[in-house]
Nucleic acid binder design. Structure first.
Lengths: 182, 182
DNA sequence: AGATAAGCGGAACGATAGTTCCGCTTATGG
DNA sequence: CCATAAGCGGAACTATCGTTCCGCTTATCT
């Protein structure tokens, strides 16, 4: 069991796999996760068959791309936690994470449909810390739950999809309503 | 031109048409506008051909159902405008309209994708009145625009779709942020 | 009741997806 | 440089839709 012998990929195969994930990231960002596999293959300069040798099904490719997005979100979370002012950290996280969503149409769908498993595991603890810290400092409403973060992203994501230019205004509105003490 | 002779429908055809719209309303409410035509036909107890004799394309059926939904929303708007307290009217409209959305999955998609033409024409003026009235009474933020109503519905719709039980809480949050004077 | 045309059901069609398969290409190790 | 197997491309298969078509049914009128 500890030695699942994993022969290394041929050099060209390795390169293809990388170009594939990059192409999928771009394609999903532009057109959402519903872009056809043929389109992803075309962008990567490979045939569809190559996709399926690396990823058994489309969902697996989507997962791989999601994993990449999670990396970036975790980085933002860590940056937010490094700030002394917890409210400022909370605000910074929302602002930057939603900026990512605004630039990546697929990301919203990814987190809306999936995003429960891997994402929660890696981001959940950090987010909980961000929230409770802001509440301890008396800046964030005490009745705000960690799960509510998903509602915030859902609602903001929908707004962004409809009219990206109103993102800042909407986020400001939400934050205003989330501040502690009326 | 003024006399486009319109022979009346055969009695059974008339009944079928009505059952069809009702079935479509149900089907869209449950499964969204993406339910197959076969499913709508099955629910109505007719063949797909019958749908296409009444509605040239699926979009036309969707429009017919949307028209019905608009009727209800207009009724709610009128009820809201009848109240003396403009803020209370605004609140009542949001509450009831979103309750409709919560019960009808298709409605959200309908308004998200379409809803621009017919809906705006019939509901727009009433909504504008509702808003400016609330602003004149000093209850609603002066910078709230009529178009922002769409953002409110978008965001709340997304929340409802994810977790219907958090609707009231989210609407309260939004309303809190929309109240005039901090 | 019988003639007639409006109306009907549902098989079949065309488009678009995701996925599979197999003959050819090419990186790799000796 | 050759043998070999890993890897590749993309045609073809399957499933799901919206939509069309046509032979049969039935409401309507005399």
């Amino acid at each position: 069991m500890p030695g699942t012998t994993e022969r290394p990929l041929r050099r060209d195969a390795q390169a293809n796999r990388e170009r594939l994930v990059a192409a999928a990231l771009d394609a999903f960002a532009e057109g959402g996760v519903d872009v056809p596999m043929d389109e992803v293959a075309r962008r990567a300069g490979v045939g569809v068959g190559t996709i399926y040798r690396n990823f058994p099904a489309k969902d697996d490719l989507v997962d791989a791309v999601l994993e990449d997005a999670i990396d970036r979100l975790v980085a933002i979370l860590e940056r937010a936690l490094a700030l002394d002012d917890a409210w400022e950290g909370f605000r910074l996280y929302l602002e930057h994470a939603l900026d990512l969503h605004a630039r990546n149409r697929g990301l919203k769908e990814l987190f809306a449909a999936r995003g429960t498993g891997r994402a929660r595991k890696r981001m959940g603890p950090l987010a909980v810390r961000l929230i409770s810290r802001a509440q301890e400092q008396g800046a964030l409403r005490p009745d705000f739950k960690a799960e509510d973060l998903r509602l915030v992203f859902r609602s903001a994501g929908a707004v962004i999809e409809y009219d990206p230019s109103s993102r800042r205004r909407f986020v400001a509105l939400l934050l205003d309503g989330l501040k502690a003490g009326r």
